[in-house]
């Protein structure tokens, strides 16, 4: 997100009051850690140093390699990998369907394994390799699974689709795509309300039987 100070809406009073920073600084128990006297704290707030302090005490530096690109970020420990991808890295291909591990829309690969990024803290993924739907195609050349989803119409609204595709690729790599029944079971962590299941199964079967590496 860009610096808020630089942002002003046309036609509005540009002096939008933002007391929250100051309030935060006055309240924050973390400040005891830096042993600032209340006076200094308020001064710090007035100097808008609070975000910098928050940066140091509320946030942690992490390194994520996402789709082959290294990112050094500063995140709050409570930020999930899903929200970091979507809100900080603008990688919105990974979807939020429930935020509680109950739908699979947020499926990504961490070090090659499919996981729910909504239940993964960003700080826990630090140092790991993450692949999202945006990292599957090689340039303009779609991944075979993406091609198969297109061909078999493995989606309608497309919202569960990135998660389905990430899961489908993993399903084959794990060796769980040996029969229709097995695919159905091992794709059950990805809910599709539009009801594209049979088409998804067909797409996976075709990729599995095809010669292309997955």
């Amino acid at each position: 997100m860009e610096d808020e100070k630089d942002y002003a809406l046309p036609g509005f009073d540009t002096e939008a009051k933002d007391n929250s920073r100051r309030n935060f600084l006055k309240q924050s128990t973390l400040l005891t850690a830096v042993a600032l006297t209340p006076g200094t704290a308020i001064k710090a707030a007035d100097m808008r140093l609070d975000e910098k302090i928050a940066e140091a005490f509320e946030k942690m530096p992490i390194k994520l390699e996402v789709n082959g690109v290294a990112h050094s970020l500063s995140v709050e420990p409570r930020a999930t990998l899903l929200d970091i991808l979507r809100e900080q890295l603008d990688l919105t291909g990974t979807k939020k369907g429930c935020d509680h591990g109950q739908c699979g829309a947020c499926t990504v690969h961490i070090d090659g394994h499919r996981v729910n990024s909504c239940l993964t803290l960003g700080v826990m993924a630090s140092g790991k390799k993450i692949t999202t739907i945006e990292g599957l195609a090689k340039g303009d050349e779609l991944h075979p699974m993406q091609e198969a989803f297109l061909k078999h119409d493995g989606f309608q609204c497309g919202y569960c689709t990135p998660g389905q595709i990430m899961s489908a690729v993993a399903c084959i790599r794990e060796g769980h795509a040996n029969s229709e029944m097995e695919i159905r079971e091992y794709m059950s962590g990805n809910i599709c309300r539009c009801g594209a299941y049979p088409n998804i199964v067909n797409a996976i079967q075709e990729v599995k039987e095809g010669a292309q590496a997955v």
Binding site: T92, K95, L142, F149, F155, T161
Partner: peptide, 15 residues
Amino acid sequence: SRIDGRLKVTGAARY
């Protein structure tokens, strides 16, 4: 195939 399919399978479709 869907005209917007490519955007959907690559994660480029923005909701």
